[in-house]
Design a protein around this nucleic acid. Structure first.
Lengths: 326, 326
DNA sequence: CTGTTAGCGCTTTCAA
DNA sequence: TTGAAAGCGCTAACAG
C-alpha cells in the first residue's frame, strides 16, 4: 500500500541507506549531487514519506509533544493551546490530552518527546522526573521542580486591590476557583491584602453558569454586608457575575464594581467592558513550547523558570462605590 | 533506560511472546491464569509500557487520530475540539493541527489512523481518498465524498429569516464569513430568501474585532438605507457588532435587532442576550469521532452523512423595528 | 499452554 | 561516495 524506502531505492537505482541519507538531509558531503537529485525525484514521483513509527523505533524520538489540560472550552485555556499550536514547529506534532484521562505514565508511553502540563494534578502525581522533559504552565510551583512558565500574577493582583481600594471600596466579595492551584491562591491572597486580608470568599468552578448561579444565590448576603465590589479569579466567572447582576436589574459599576483576572478577547466587549488583570495566554503557550523544545533538544537544562508580566486593565466595570449604600 | 518486554519476560520467567499476549489482553484461553498473574505483576513492578513505535511498526496502526482545524480560539471550534477530545476513547490519542500547516499528506505520514477535518481547504486539496479514513465536519459537501457530519443549518436560517420578517423587519444587513464554506453560503442564502434574497451582505473574518470595525464603518450606510436588523454568520461576529453598536450608544434591539448562528455558551449572557441559530458544536465533535472510529475499525463504510439539527433560539437582541425609522 | 522465529521500515555503523 | 547488514521493540504465525 504505502510506498517505502525500498521502492524509492529501486526507482532511483540506489540502496535504501542512500535514500535515508537524502530524505534526512544528511547527504551533505556523503552523497553525490547527481545521486541526490535522482533520489529526490524518485521521492517526489512516488510520493514517499518516511514511516514515522519505523523512524521512532530506531531513533527513539517521536517528533511529538503533548499538551495536558482540562476544559478546552475555557477561552483562556483555548488561547494557551492556540499559542502552543502555533509555536510548535512544522516538524513537531501536538498531542492534546484533556481531562485527567491519560496519566503521565500513559502519555509518556504514547510516544511523546515532552509534555506541557496545565492542569491540577489529581492524585498529586509528581510532575517531572519522568522519562521526558516537562514544562509546567501557569503554576508558580516550587524551586527545584520542572521548568515552568507562569505569570507574575501577584503584581496584577496587587494593582487590582490598590485600584479598588483607591476608588473607595471597603468591602469586597471574592469568587475563587473551586480547584486550588497556586496561581489562584496567589491571586486571592495578594488581592485580599489590599483589604487587610478581609474579603468574603466563595469557591466556584471555572464556568460561567456556575458563577452566575453562585452570584444569584449570594447576592442578598453581599448587599446586606455592604459589599460594593465583586472580584473573580477568572474572566469567565466574571461573565457569570455580570449576567446574574443584569438579570436582577442591577447596574455595573453603579450598584457593584466587577473585576477579574485573564483579559480574554471577549472581556473588552462585555457590558460593561471588564476591568481585569491581563495575562497573555498565547504568549504563555508559545514560551512554554520554546522551553520544552530546547530541553528536548538538550540545548538547555530543566528547572528553569520564566515569569511573564500581568497588568491591570481598567475598563468601565469598576468605579467608585455609590455614596449611599442604602 | 526504558523497560522493555524482554525485561518483563526475564522477571516473570516467560518468553516475550507471552508478555505480549498478556499486555494485549489476548491471553484468554492461551495463557494460564498463573502465568498471566506472574506477568502482570512483573509489568507492575517494572512499570512496563509497550513501546508504541514498535507496536505501530508491526501492527500498522497508531491509536491516534488528527483534528485539522483553524483557530482554536473561536469558541465554536473550541467546543467542537472539546467534544472530539471527550469522545475519543482512552486508547485513542488526539493530534491537533491548526492552521493549514500540515497538509493532509504530511499528516497522514505523521502516523494517524484517521482525520477529522474542519477547515477550509486552501488549494482545494481533495479530502478523502487518502490513505486513512476522513470525516468532514460542519460542511454539507457533496454526495459521494467522504463521511461528514454537519448541521441542518438551512432549517435554522429559514426560522431566523421568518422570525425577523415576521416581527416586521424589511431591510437587513448580513455580515458573512470572509471564507466561503458551503455552510456559510447556505446560512446566508436561506436566510436571505425570507427577504426575497435582498440582503445587504459584507464579508468579514470570523473575529470579534474585525466585525466590530466593519460595523463601525458600515453603520452610517446601514442607517441611511433603512436597515433595521443585522445578522452575522457566527456568534463571534455578532459580539463585535454588539460592541460597535454599544460604543456609539445605539441600543439593541431598539435601534437594531442583532442575530446570528452558533449559540456559544457566552451568547446567552451578552448584552442583550443574543438571538441565534443554535448548533451543538460538542455533539458535532462527538459524532464525528464516533463515525471515524467506526471506519477505522472497519465496522462501517465511508461516505456516510449525519445531519444534526439547528434551532432558532430567540432572546432579547431581536424585536420589532421602531415604528419611526427617523 | 508456551516458546521460537520472522519480519514491520527505517537509521546507522562499518566496509568496500 | 555508496552498499551491506545489524538491529530498534514488538506482534503474530507457527511449532511444540
Amino acid at each position: 500500500m504505502a510506498v517505502k524506502a525500498t521502492d524509492v531505492a529501486a526507482r532511483a537505482g540506489v540502496s535504501i541507506a542512500t535514500v535515508s541519507l537524502v530524505v534526512n538531509g544528511k547527504g551533505a558531503g556523503r552523497v553525490s549531487a547527481d545521486t541526490r537529485t535522482r533520489v529526490e525525484q524518485a521521492v517526489r514521483e512516488l510520493g514517499y514519506v518516511v514511516n514515522p513509527a519505523a523512524r521512532s523505533l530506531v531513533t527513539g524520538t517521536h517528533g511529538r509533544i503533548a499538551l495536558l489540560t482540562d476544559d478546552l472550552v475555557n477561552p483562556f485555556i483555548a488561547a494557551i493551546a492556540s499559542g502552543v499550536s502555533t509555536a510548535s514547529g512544522a516538524d513537531t506534532a501536538l498531542l492534546l490530552a484533556t481531562g485527567s484521562r491519560p496519566d503521565h505514565a500513559t502519555l509518556a508511553s504514547m510516544g511523546v518527546d515532552g509534555m506541557l502540563v496545565h492542569r491540577d494534578e489529581p492524585d498529586g502525581q509528581a510532575v517531572g522526573g519522568g522519562p521526558v522533559p516537562v514544562v509546567v504552565l501557569d503554576e508558580p510551583g516550587v524551586p527545584g521542580g520542572p521548568t515552568g512558565v507562569h505569570f507574575d500574577v501577584g503584581r496584577g493582583a496587587a494593582a487590582l486591590g490598590a485600584h479598588l481600594a483607591g476608588i473607595g471600596h471597603r468591602r469586597v466579595a471574592y469568587v475563587d476557583s473551586a480547584r486550588s492551584r497556586t496561581s489562584f491562591t496567589l491571586r486571592r491572597e495578594v488581592f485580599a491584602a489590599a483589604f487587610g486580608g478581609e474579603v468574603s470568599t466563595t469557591g466556584c468552578g471555572l464556568d460561567l453558569a456556575l458563577a452566575r448561579e453562585l452570584t444569584t444565590d449570594a447576592l442578598a448576603g453581599w448587599r446586606r454586608s455592604g459589599i460594593t465590589a465583586i472580584v473573580t479569579a477568572t474572566d469567565v466567572q466574571a461573565y457569570g457575575v455580570l449576567a446574574a447582576l443584569a438579570a436582577v436589574g442591577l447596574s455595573v459599576p453603579h450598584d457593584f464594581s466587577v473585576a477579574s483576572f485573564d483579559d480574554n478577547a471577549l472581556s473588552s466587549i462585555t457590558a460593561p467592558p471588564l476591568t481585569t488583570v491581563a495575562m497573555d495566554a498565547a504568549e504563555l503557550g508559545r514560551r512554554a513550547v520554546t522551553l520544552l523544545l530546547e530541553e528536548i533538544r538538550g540545548s538547555a537544562p530543566a528547572g528553569r523558570s520564566v515569569v511573564l508580566p500581568s497588568s491591570l486593565v481598567i475598563r468601565s466595570s469598576t468605579a467608585a462605590p455609590r455614596e449611599d449604600p442604602s
